[in-house]
Design a protein around this nucleic acid. Structure first.
Lengths: 233, 233
DNA sequence: CGGCATCCGGGAAGATACTG
DNA sequence: CAGTATCTTCCCGGATGCCG
């Protein structure tokens, strides 16, 4: 038992904050530390356990994840909650205010894909893929289409609902969807954002497609990437 | 003269990037380092010199500012430019892509002002004040009003143009504006966001108001802050 | 196993002094 | 004025270990 670990986040004169009244600067005080925004991203589709967060954020270490969750909770962005029995496990969940950052993260992601340095072939989490569909949505491309598309991405499954141009994404079982993709999130991304033909991914065993293949071919054309910014010199 | 300082930003295996295909993660690779976003904020109303950036970002040190500018330039967000003679000084300017982050920063700032921990009485830069008017704009509050309002905030002067609910802000001389505020940016913020009466600020000598006082009293009611998020626990 | 504390090495950030 | 050099401090990342 330790005697003097009051978390020492005692208010020293200025524990490395920007002493700035600007709202944007305060946002950085809240979520500007390393990994903080990505932890929020992983919670954007619903609550998660510590271990799942860790698994979906390759590269984060346990102690940093602990610190970020503490910080986000102290800020009122995340709450630690006990699931009701029989599950009775502890999960972390965004508050209503935390969820309101979703469109901002979407806009930030869309902006950053204009970077010439962006590499879309790296690892991608299941949540990131679902959020990307909403962030990159172009309603005009499918406003006449109503469809349900399922994704089985390792531990997580999602259902995408397209209706009148809007896209709704929820965690849940894809059974009964018009179309179901099974594989890694990055394989789906390769088709949607990388232009890799679905047939190629199926042949490689990277992606399995069940249901309406015509719909699948249409779906992957719905999310055009914005034009790249000019390379610096 | 040093022999071995190739800036050593040689491509080690992964110079502390998130190896993540997600656009938001890439955004953090580009602008997630400390001070980066605030440097961009200070350039949002037009180019600035190194020394002015330093003065408007109290707390940043010269070497960190140098590194951030190098990084932002390498990313294609900022360009270093030589002003034409006779000025012929070096300035830093956002690229077109860099300027496109403006609405994102605005949304981020608006989101963060819901934080119970936000302190609007701290130091505020002139640029932050101008950006806040655009970020917090509620067109319905003044869509019938056409007016020009000037601000003399230390070294910098700005002109705000209100027309049909839109707000346009540019650097420039306030001469001829319907109303001119002269003082520190935080004094204006105290009136607009802090509810401090203009008469009080005038009496204290914190703010001088020239021109249409009625307009001034109306103006400070145009930017309501969003409701606070619940305090954590 | 999930959550959290501890110790340690490397590197980024802060402060200050210095140079062209 | 526009940065660079240097030193210190602190954060991040990784490993280990404790406890429920």
């Amino acid at each position: 038992m330790k005697l003097q670990n009051i978390t020492d986040s005692e208010n020293g004169p200025s524990r490395r904050r920007y002493e700035d009244a600007c709202g944007t600067a305060h946002a950085l005080d809240l979520i500007g530390e390393r990994w903080a925004l990505l932890v929020m991203r992983e919670l954007m589709m619903g609550p998660k356990r510590f271990g799942d967060l860790r698994a979906d954020l390759p590269g984060i270490s346990a102690n940093v994840l602990t610190q970020r969750l503490e910080g986000l909770e102290a800020a009122g962005i995340v709450v630690k909650r006990q699931l009701p029995p029989p599950a009775a496990v502890q999960v972390y969940e965004l508050t209503e205010w935390g969820y309101q950052s979703k469109p901002i993260m979407g806009a930030l992601g869309r902006w950053a894909t204009r970077s010439p340095l962006h590499d879309p072939t790296l690892h991608l989490s299941a949540v990131s893929l679902m959020l990307s569909f909403q962030a990159m949505n172009q309603p005009a491309r499918h406003k006449d289409l109503t469809a349900t598309i399922g994704f089985r991405l390792g531990r997580e499954s999602y259902v995408l609902r397209l209706e009148e141009g809007a896209i709704d994404a929820t965690r849940g079982d894809p059974d009964g969807a018009d179309l179901v993709f099974t594989g890694a999130a990055r394989a789906v991304a390769a088709a949607v954002y990388g232009g890799v033909p679905l047939a190629t991914l199926e042949a490689e065993g990277a992606l399995a497609i069940a249901g309406d293949h015509i719909l699948a071919e249409r779906f992957i054309t719905f999310f055009p990437l914005p034009p790249k910014a000019p390379q610096p010199v």
